[in-house]
Nucleic acid binder design. Structure first.
Length: 304
DNA sequence: AAACGTTGCAACCGCTTTCCA
DNA sequence: TTGGAAAGCGGTTGCAACGTT
């Protein structure tokens, strides 16, 4: 069971808690470099760290491990999170397996701070079908649009990440994280996500990936999928969703500015609605929103 | 500029699952 | 088969940075 159970010399000595120091990080990295991962309790005892094995493991897996990717989630990653969460729910570690370099903790934080925030503002349950519909009808298509429009989007994985050294240098221990690492390299959105197969049900075969296979699940998108002109890197996006004012900043939904047109001004049919969205797309220019409150409100209203 | 509120994320906690003798 | 230890997981909390008044 956990290391707090029972009592021995190691546990009786004063254990450190809270933010990790540079010295502790260095010690942990050095120990793992020499002895490898695993045996966390043993590591905690032998490394000289006054931490629990559990704490050491968490620090390593969530922060120090060299292949950890830091910085804002790309639209591709956000799309995957939304898609996989709709399928598996709060299975963070499982979702994280399909986002190389991202940790379950990071994904969990993204969901809580970004996604659930929107649900709270709408006063609806983040796990409700209504909210899921809103995600599928508005958020995800816009992410696809972003993925198709951004030529400078970060790669899904930074294979050159030497995060360890970089992080030690940049990490304000206990404080807010450093600015995201940048890598201008361009990759296929799912090049390194080989195990992700959105079309399969429970089990995901670790082989081919074709994100466009997710399209039948996305209303408004499937009708365009047959036209190669509408596809990008295997994705197909709806030209009526989103528009020309695509922002290229990190998270797509940090802020949700009120749409210029109120929901009542939007058309009643889907196509009318989509057209209105295109017409009103300066919203994305004003803020960083992939969607806005009126839009969500409209979709949720339609769904109920 | 200072006080206060909000945000984002690292770290912790407790429970479950897996491993192994 | 069983029981203890280790590892894994998801929920929650604490706090520094940032934004607003």
């Amino acid at each position: 069971m956990s290391e707090r159970r029972g009592s021995n010399k190691f546990e009786d000595m004063e254990l450190r808690r809270g933010p990790w120091t540079l010295e502790e990080d260095t010690l942990l990295i050095h120990y793992i470099a020499c002895h490898g991962e695993g045996r966390w309790n043993l590591l905690a005892k032998c490394s000289g760290l006054k931490r629990t094995g559990k704490s050491c493991r968490l620090r390593w897996l969530n922060y120090l491990k060299p292949d950890i990717k830091r910085g804002n989630l790309s639209p591709e990653e956000q799309f995957l999170i939304l898609e996989l969460h709709s399928k598996w729910g709060n299975r963070w570690s499982r979702i994280a397996q399909h986002l190389p370099g991202r940790t379950d903790n990071e994904i969990k934080n993204y969901w809580r701070t970004r996604v659930q925030k929107q649900a709270r503002q709408l006063k609806i349950d983040a796990n409700s079908a209504t909210f899921r519909d809103a995600i599928r009808c508005s958020w995800m298509p816009r992410l696809l649009e972003k993925m198709g429009s951004s030529q400078s989007m970060p790669p899904l994985i930074d294979s050159n990440a030497t995060a360890t050294a970089g992080m030690i240098d940049q990490t304000p221990h206990g404080g807010r994280p450093p600015q995201p690492f940048s890598n201008p390299a361009m990759q296929h959105p799912f090049e390194n996500c080989s195990s992700y197969d959105p079309s399969s049900s429970e089990n995901h075969s670790p082989s081919t990936s074709s994100a466009s296979m997710a399209l039948p699940k996305l209303p408004y998108l499937s009708e365009f999928s047959s036209n190669p002109a509408n596809s990008y890197h295997g994705f197909t996006f709806n030209p009526f969703m989103g528009g020309h004012c695509i922002d290229h900043s990190g998270y797509g939904l940090d802020t949700m500015d009120p749409a210029p047109a109120s929901a009542s001004q939007l058309g009643s049919s889907v196509s009318e609605y989509n057209y209105s969205m295109a017409a009103n797309n300066c919203v994305d220019n004003i803020g960083d929103g992939l969607w806005n409150m009126d839009e969500l409100w409209y979709i949720c209203k339609k769904a109920t």
